[in-house]
């Protein structure tokens, strides 16, 4: 399942759905998902509702997204993570950088 991204809330929110497996094989796809970011975007949501597992390279990819977009004033959230995936985010203290819902 590929990564899909869509705009919501009149183009202000970009939602990136990373699919079932979030690991290094998604490096390219994930970067493309926020590559040509609309000018109105003020928030990026990473939707993990379908994600079965993630590894440290996925964590790296999330942080790299923030670094790449550091010049834009954006807020970020990670949403709908399943319990075992949420545990990885918690262990890595990602709540400090992302709003985890």
């Amino acid at each position: 399942m590929e990564i899909t991204s869509s705009y919501q809330n009149q183009g202000k929110v970009l939602v990136v759905d990373v699919g079932t497996k979030f690991d290094f094989s998604k490096v390219e796809d994930f970067r493309n998902a926020y590559g040509e970011l609309g000018a109105d975007v003020s928030h990026i949501t990473v939707d993990l509702s379908r994600t079965e597992y993630m590894d440290s390279s996925a964590l790296g990819m999330l942080l790299n997204m923030q670094k790449t977009l550091a010049e834009r004033e954006l807020t970020y959230s990670i949403e709908n993570a399943r319990p075992q995936v949420a545990k990885i985010l918690k262990i890595s203290r990602f709540d400090k950088k992302f709003d985890i819902k």
């Binding site: 690991d23 290094f24 597992y53 993630m54 590894d55 440290s56 075992q84 995936v85 545990k87 990885i88």
Partner: peptide, 15 residues
């Protein structure tokens, strides 16, 4: 109960 965790660990070790 820890399937996803095992996937993460294995993926980590493999990479």
């Amino acid at each position: 109960a820890v399937r996803s965790i095992i996937y993460t660990v294995l993926s980590e070790l493999f990479n």
